[in-house]
């Protein structure tokens, strides 16, 4: 990567993934050092979400290797032609270091916001409940939802749910945060509030990998942009370079297409 001598937080090498005869990822390398904010962009079907989901083994890659926080993830054939976790205990431990924020929020709908945030710290990480509750309230306060702590997800707006999901992810004190198109399911007027929270996380030096369609946001927040096309990294580098001065014609055309539809993404700071 272009920058930093800070320690490596995540390294994925040669990630391949096939669904049946369709090869979605054709050997992708991705390295995130501590404090990196990496934006993965690309058209639909380019494999960017699949790549993100391979990083925490929600999808089993067909080939490749993963190293998270200095620890090699044991991979073994899962009997269906893909690589699954060699050790359930290890992958569970590693997943708690890789909190994921989903496109469709995926808050647990039978739990209040506070319960959503404390569930994993208390029951997976074994943090005492009163301590976890205090921390959860601080996180909810930080994403502007302290007054909604005892509300169920169904009664929150999409933006509020996504901010709650970010608080849930922060609660496990992840080494790397994975964002899978965090604003794609939101009404345009709710995008800004979520991007603002993500920006503040980037500013405090959190390591993040984002799949996003918000080009303006990627330019402002990321320090590295990866353009995926047809399962391969077509171009990558500093945001100003990749987004401002694309080398490949395909990236230029892609940016031309999305540029017209995502103007609102530059407004997030002003709300």
């Amino acid at each position: 990567m272009a920058l930093t001598h800070s320690p490596e937080a995540l390294r994925a090498e040669g990630i391949r993934k096939s669904f049946g005869s369709l090869e979605v990822l054709k050997g992708v390398d991705l390295t995130a050092c501590k404090g990196d904010v990496i934006a993965i962009i690309g058209g639909s079907g380019s494999g960017k979400s699949t790549l993100l989901r391979c990083l925490n083994l929600l999808e089993h890659p067909t080939a490749g290797s993963l190293r998270i926080d200095g620890e090699e993830v044991g991979l073994t054939p899962d009997g269906r032609g893909h690589l699954g976790a060699a050790s359930n205990a290890q992958i569970r431990r590693i997943r708690t270091k890789l909190a994921m924020v989903f496109q469709s929020f995926n808050l647990w709908s039978h739990m209040t916001l506070l319960e959503n945030v404390t569930e994993v710290p208390v029951r997976v990480l074994g943090i005492p409940r009163d301590k976890a509750t205090v921390e959860a309230m601080e996180l909810l306060d930080r994403v502007g939802l302290a007054d909604k702590a005892n509300v169920y997800p169904a009664f929150l707006s999409g933006g509020q749910q996504q901010r709650g999901a970010i608080a849930r992810a922060l609660a496990v004190q992840p080494k790397v945060m994975l964002f899978d198109e965090p604003t794609s399911a939101l009404d345009p007027e709710l995008v800004g509030e979520v991007l603002k929270v993500i920006t503040s996380l980037a500013e405090e030096g959190r390591t993040m990998i984002l799949v996003t369609h918000e080009m303006g946001f990627a330019r402002d927040v990321a320090n590295h942009v990866v353009f995926l096309r047809d399962g391969l990294v077509e171009e990558q580098g500093l945001p100003a370079q990749v987004l401002g001065n694309p080398k490949s014609e395909r990236l230029a055309r892609f940016l031309g297409n999305v540029g017209r539809t995502s103007d609102h993404s530059t407004d997030y700071g002003r709300q």
Binding site: R92, R95, F105, V120, R123, V172
Partner: peptide, 24 residues
Amino acid sequence: GQLEAARSFGMSPWHSFRRIWFPQ
């Protein structure tokens, strides 16, 4: 998606069943 979220946060299958899937 809610079960996937449970998995992505390191819950075991039994934990996810007991806390997320079955109650709902």
